[in-house]
Structures are given as structure tokens and as C-alpha cells.
Design a protein around this nucleic acid. Sequence first.
DNA 1: TAATAATGACCGGTTGGTCGGTCATTATTA
DNA 2: TAATAATGACCGACCAACCGGTCATTATTA
Lengths: 182, 182
Amino acid sequence: MQVFAREGYHRAKIEAVAEEAGIGKGTVYEYFRSKTDLFLALHEHMLSELKNFYMKELAEIREPSLMLERFIAAAFQTFRLWEPFFLVFFDFWAEGGRGEQQTLLQTRLRDAYAASRSDVAAIITAGVKDGAFRCEYPLLAASSILASLDGLVLQWLCDREAFDLDSMREMFSQTILRSLRP
Amino acid sequence: MQVFAREGYHRAKIEAVAEEAGIGKGTVYEYFRSKTDLFLALHEHMLSELKNFYMKELAEIREPSLMLERFIAAAFQTFRLWEPFFLVFFDFWAEGGRGEQQTLLQTRLRDAYAASRSDVAAIITAGVKDGAFRCEYPLLAASSILASLDGLVLQWLCDREAFDLDSMREMFSQTILRSLRP
DNA sequence: TAATAATGACCGGTTGGTCGGTCATTATTA
DNA sequence: TAATAATGACCGACCAACCGGTCATTATTA
């Protein structure tokens, strides 16, 4: 992750990965068939780490509006905490968003997005059911929330001075919750 | 643009660019010092095209809330109309968001973001002045709107079936405008 | 000792960039 | 006008560097 984050997928050298890991280059190939394979494994690992983090943050919370607020707060936390993580995401997007043929990365990225959307939508739907939220199309709203978070991390990584993360989180969180109020 | 969009910056071959342009490979180097230089020129060209498009769409509109609505509508139009354009953006982000040292692309990307933010913020501020909007931090709001649009195009490019662009535009537009209402 | 794991020198395909040369067009000369 | 010279846009074969992946060899473990 360190090497891919620093250099980007294409510039990253297997030898650098090996060095970072304190092993020889050949040893990398004992565990991964190819560079692509390594990248794919990294993607899978990172997504599961991310999911674990959110699960932990949201554990035991039941109230939908609090869940959403905490989810957003957790997302903003990850920006700072897992910066290299998101730098690698640049490449997932670049590789996964392109091309006609279905590469494995494309499928994985799509599935991950779909899963996130439905997770967030489930929170919104729960809120609608118990009267805390009003929302006609929870899936659209979920897409839009996730998109905003992606876009924010993108903008922030390109220019750390662009905005203050805490102010942004507060404003964003309030805006979202207000827009869902009945 | 076609070649970079199809292949991504690193996979794109100068020879393919030449072929697409109907010229020889050597000729490319009569006009551009290097691959990086070509990419940089493309970035500049694309940004100015985009800006022209928005200027045209917003010409003669004065009312802030209408301006914002039209801006959002225009942004969604570009998703469909200029798909290759945004595929190249993947690489701008990936190249521009990475690394400590200040590459030219990084500076350009930052400046472009800053300009967009202040353009959108200006619309919001105008709306606040004439009482159409209520907004404490127009720059934060502008950042957030731009981020959402970036994130949406990202998500849509990774999965065209993720959501219907028209429904999304309508919902998004309404949400934004509602959140700015006094 | 036998099996397994680790290693890094090496190979070969790829590609950014170069350079000597061509040729259509324009300018100059006779 | 016709012959000659100058121009520079265009070209693609070639080169050198780079790096993903291999494999014969060495180290470690059981």
C-alpha cells in the first residue's frame, strides 16, 4: 500500500514493494502471481479493512439519524487516518473505470459501490420507517452521499489547504441530516 | 484525448496518439517536447473547453438560484456528452493528487479547483446578498457541491447502471437548492 | 538429508524519445 | 517562365532504459 500510494500503480516497482516489505523480489512472486494479482489482493484487503472500521464505529448504534451522522464522521476520520489508502484509490478508479471489457477490478469496484450504496440506503430507509427521515429515493440519496465523500477526499488530497476537514464535516453532516428531515 | 481516455496515461502510446491523429510518431515531437508535455497541454485545453461550455450555458442568467440550477444541469450534461473527457480526468487526479514535490500538473489542478470553488461560491454569495439563499460559508458549500459532482461522475463511470442520471440530477438539484433556502 | 522457502542476477518485451533523411511547397535566380 | 535553391513539416527505423517475471542457486527448516 505504501509503495502504490507513493508512486501510483504503474510507476510502482515490484522491487520497491519487496524492499519495503524487507524481502527479496523473487519472494513476492511466491505469494502473488503477478503485479495485477498483488494489486487486486490489496484492493480486497483495503475494502475489508474499511468495512471493519465502519462496522466498529457503528456497532450498537440503532437510531438512523445518529448512524448517519456517525458514518459521515467516520468517513471524514478515514481521510486523515488513512491517507495512503485513498491515494491508492486513485488507481482503483483509474483502472476500474476504464475499458469495455470486464476486468476483475472493474467488477470488484462496481460490487463494492453497490454494497456501500445499499448499506447507506438501508440506514435511510430505516429512518423513513420510524419517521425520523423523509426521503423518496433512498438509493439515490445514498449514491449522492457516497459521491460527495469520494469527491471531498479527492479534492482534499489534491489540495490539503482547500478546506478545513472539521468545518467541512460539520457543515456537510448538518446539510445531509437537514435535507432528510420530514 | 481519445487515446488517453481509452488507455489511461501510462498505457497510452505516443504511436497510438500519432495514429489517431493521422500523423507519424516523430511529428508528435515536433509539437510537444514529451509525453508529459502533451498531457499537460491536453489538461489545459480540456479545462478551457469546460469553462467555455459553462460560460455559454450561464450567459445572460442573473438570478442566483437559476444560475445554480443551470450550472448543475450543465454539469450533468457534460457527464454524458463528454465521457472521454472525464475518463482522462481519472489520470489528472491520479497524477495530480500524488507526491510531495510540486509538479506542474499538481499546481494546475489545484488552481483549477480553487477557481471553480470561487466561481460557485460567488453565485451563492450573490444569492445570499439578494435574500434568495441563506448560507454561512459559501466556499465550503461550493467545495461540497463540486465534490458531489466529481464523485457522481466517478461513480457513474465505474457503473453506468448505478443510477439514472436524470433522476439523480433532479434530486440533487432540489436538495442543493432546498438546503440553501432561507 | 530432504523439503521448503528465499533470493537476486538475468532475460526479453516494451516504449519514450532521437535523428538522419524525404518531399511538397515556396522563394530566388537566370 | 523555367530552373534551381531553400525551407521545414513529416516520417519511422532505431536506441537505450526500464521493469515484470523467471529460475538456478543458496539458506532455512523439520
